[in-house]
Design a protein around this nucleic acid. Structure first.
Lengths: 246, 246
DNA sequence: CGCCGATTTGACTCAGATCAAGGTTTGTGG
DNA sequence: CCACAAACCTTGATCTGAGTCAAATCGGCG
């Protein structure tokens, strides 16, 4: 069925060169010349509606993607059907790297809200790596980041209490807001409680209760999906990043 | 203090070309010519004693490694000091990929027993990628594998019960034994219970009790570190990979 | 307004952690 | 070869963080 609404495509037509996410994304550190090569290869952004799949577990992997706007979650599926969200990808962040393993993706990627993603076809990536010196290293950097990011998440799931997990999640979001020069202590969650719970390996009810606790302790203010961090320091104390102040 | 024992170095001097782990390791699918290039770059194996660090969190990353013999664990450390083991690396498996993120390793790598590792210096990897067509793709394959492997572990830690985790762990080991053409239903664990527990996100006591349960149910036989899988099918049923028979 | 999905709140339960011994194996020095 | 210590592993008893179940409330939206 065709949708009545049409996503405005005008604002999507932005070259890497002009993209304000440039430094967070693939083009990080590239020269103007290199960016031109990049632009020649990157497809114009794909529009996604909420709940659209960008790719599915098992699909042949033909590209990696960069989120241009919105938010995309990736999740793995187990033999007995339950799912684990392994990442929420904000603008400038990449996804699809799991597809390198054996030419097909090993997880599902789903838009949490109306989003757009830039596409970098794999066959052209090959060529591009020869044209752009240092791109190979860039690729490695990006994959290394993915790996060490996953390791942090393993630590979270393996060793942290529910309270620490949620605090850690909020701090991670806050840090990424800051990277994007958005407000680091006030932002909207693009995912429902259910997805936060899944990602953090706990029950929705626990997420809800912890939000309530944090709020009553004046650490954050929660209004539906809108989060205001009132006491960053105390959040850091919870995850052990800071000593409790006197 | 100098040790009385000396590790026999003779058997370590093996070229990639002659290495029986060839197809599991970096050289997977390479031609003879390519293997020669590879051999010119790979350092002779480093010997490690039990509990030796191969590298530490924060060390400048200058190489990636392939386990030649023995077993090496990698673990991340949290702000408040506790550790999460993120992988046990068997012969033919690589480690050090986390170092790509920002030129320094983000986890610790420690030998679980007397081991040896081959070293592939990063600066030479660069050059090698130009000489060996398809090595770049190989690199991507390896990193993709690492990523999707981590995703499996996230699912394990986020969604599985203790019983499912241990069954899953045993099946994973068994599968890797098979890859190496070793017995898939009889092998020795190179790690203590404590490390298994840490890796699977549970208490040592739980690991111990589950081994006892599995044994009493005739699913496995446990003798200290020696494991015999008696009923592979039932293990698979536990993790949901198989339907319970009749 | 009324329905539906998302969220919150309360009461109860339980898987697995923690605490506490005790047993076994390995390594060391005399 | 034995005594002793240090790891390592197991087993039992108890406790608890967080899950489950149930129900109320909220927020959009047609």
């Amino acid at each position: 069925m065709s949708s009545i609404k049409r996503i405005d495509v005008e604002h999507l037509k932005v070259s890497c060169k002009e993209c304000n996410l440039r430094e967070l994304c693939f083009p990080h550190g590239m020269s103007d010349d290199e960016l031109s090569n990049m632009d020649a290869v990157v497809e114009q952004p794909k529009a996604l509606h909420k709940n659209d799949f960008l790719y599915r577990d098992g699909d042949k992997s033909q590209a990696i993607f960069a989120v241009r706007s919105g938010c995309v979650k990736t999740m793995t599926e187990s033999a007995n059907g339950d799912e684990q969200i392994v990442g929420f990808h904000l603008p400038g962040e990449l996804l699809g790297l799991d597809g390198f393993a054996d030419d097909s993706y090993t997880c599902n990627a789903v838009a949490l809200e109306t989003s757009s993603v830039c596409e970098l076809p794999l066959d052209q990536l090959e060529t591009l790596c020869h044209q752009v010196p240092g791109l190979q290293k860039q690729m490695r950097r990006i994959m290394g980041k993915e790996v060490s990011n996953d390791h942090k998440l393993l630590l979270l799931l393996g060793k942290m209490t529910a309270e620490e997990r949620l605090a850690s999640f909020l701090l991670s979001l806050s840090g990424r807001m800051e990277e994007r020069h958005w407000k680091e202590n006030e932002f909207n969650l693009s995912m429902p409680r259910q997805d936060i719970a899944n990602y953090l390996g706990m029950a929705v009810e626990t997420v809800s209760r912890l939000f309530a606790t944090f709020q009553s302790e004046k650490i954050i203010d929660v209004d539906r999906r809108h989060i205001t961090i009132l006491d960053m320091h105390r959040l850091k104390v919870i995850v052990g990043e800071c000593e409790p102040s006197k």
